[in-house]
């Protein structure tokens, strides 16, 4: 067991973890923050996307011990139930959610994109979201949702 400290969604937390524990499983199983999803486990689907020190990364490819002393933000930290983030609102309004399994990952990646590039073109959106798979929507509404979120955040 190793003792680590992670700032998760703005709160400093201490954990005792085995070195082979993945950040994804710490978030889901120990913190019960089950918004972050396990999809493929090999870095192809993006369902487990969280922000590590502000950058979008795959939590299924990061050891929890490696996040020691760093900042992790998950979908739960994005907004509270009564006050959705503009990105979340845009995904709902544009019908960019069907089954919803991929949505937390998409929202986290979208937030990283809009923080870097507040007014992305369709090509830039598609390139940035390449690492997130959605098997329901066919991406058209997702691209629209990102464009709408960019407008909301810009105005």
């Amino acid at each position: 067991m190793m003792e680590i400290e992670i700032t998760i969604n703005g709160r400093k937390r201490r954990f005792d973890v085995e070195p082979n524990k993945l950040l994804l499983n710490l978030v889901r199983d120990d913190l019960h923050l089950t918004g972050t999803k396990y999809g493929c486990g090999i870095g192809e689907c993006g369902a487990c996307t969280v922000h590590l020190d502000g950058e979008a990364v795959l939590s299924c490819m990061v050891l929890a011990v490696d996040a020691d002393g760093r900042t992790v933000d998950t979908i739960e930290g994005v907004a509270d139930v009564n006050n959705l983030d503009p990105v979340q609102e845009a995904y709902i309004e544009e019908g960019a959610i069907q089954c919803g399994f991929c949505t937390p990952g998409f929202v986290m990646t979208t937030k990283a994109l809009l923080a870097e590039n507040p007014d992305p073109s369709e090509a830039e959106i598609r390139e940035y979201l390449k690492g997130n798979y959605c098997r329901c929507t066919g991406y058209v509404n997702i691209v629209r949702a990102v464009q709408s979120a960019a407008r909301k955040l810009g105005s």
Binding site: N20, L22, V65
Partner: peptide, 19 residues
């Protein structure tokens, strides 16, 4: 072959060092 293994966890145990 990839889906024949459980990619949910790291199944091996090791000692971790961060020099």
């Amino acid at each position: 072959t990839i889906n024949k293994v459980n990619t949910h966890i790291v199944p091996i145990e090791f000692e971790y060092h961060a020099p």
